[in-house]
């Protein structure tokens, strides 16, 4: 394998794993549910995205043909991650979980019941 390809692959693999780790760290470390939601939805999608790009390059270089089906997984994650985050946020608002957030006081209808 070409040395430049190997450096690129190593970088992508470590960056992806680091993002996955930071996402879970956010999940563990932050204090209320709404802020915890941010870690996994963002850091993890990019983390898995980096790993999938690395996998695509690796199998294209070592295999006999271009390998692009990893794109499907990242595409799927990019579509589904926001949907599940949105649904979980909605469920949390419905259960009236306490939030550390400051409320902007306009529009009564969309405002959740604030219990600080």
């Amino acid at each position: 394998m070409n040395i430049f390809v190997e450096i690129l692959l190593s970088f992508l693999v470590i960056a992806g794993a680091a993002f996955a780790f930071i996402g879970s760290l956010g999940l563990y470390r932050l204090r209320d549910f709404y802020t915890r939601l941010h870690g996994p939805t963002k850091a993890t999608t990019l983390g898995v995205g980096c790993l999938l790009v690395a996998s695509s390059i690796f199998f294209s270089v070592t295999g006999e043909a271009l390998s692009l089906h990893e794109i499907l997984v990242s595409l799927f994650l990019f579509i589904t991650a926001p949907v599940s985050a949105h649904l979980l946020a909605k469920a949390a608002l419905h259960r009236q979980l306490p939030s550390l957030a400051v409320m902007q006081n306009n529009d009564r209808e969309t405002k959740p019941e604030h219990s600080a």
Partner: peptide
């Protein structure tokens, strides 16, 4: 360091 907020 966070300043979380709800915005409409």
């Amino acid at each position: 360091a966070l300043r979380p907020a709800f915005v409409v």
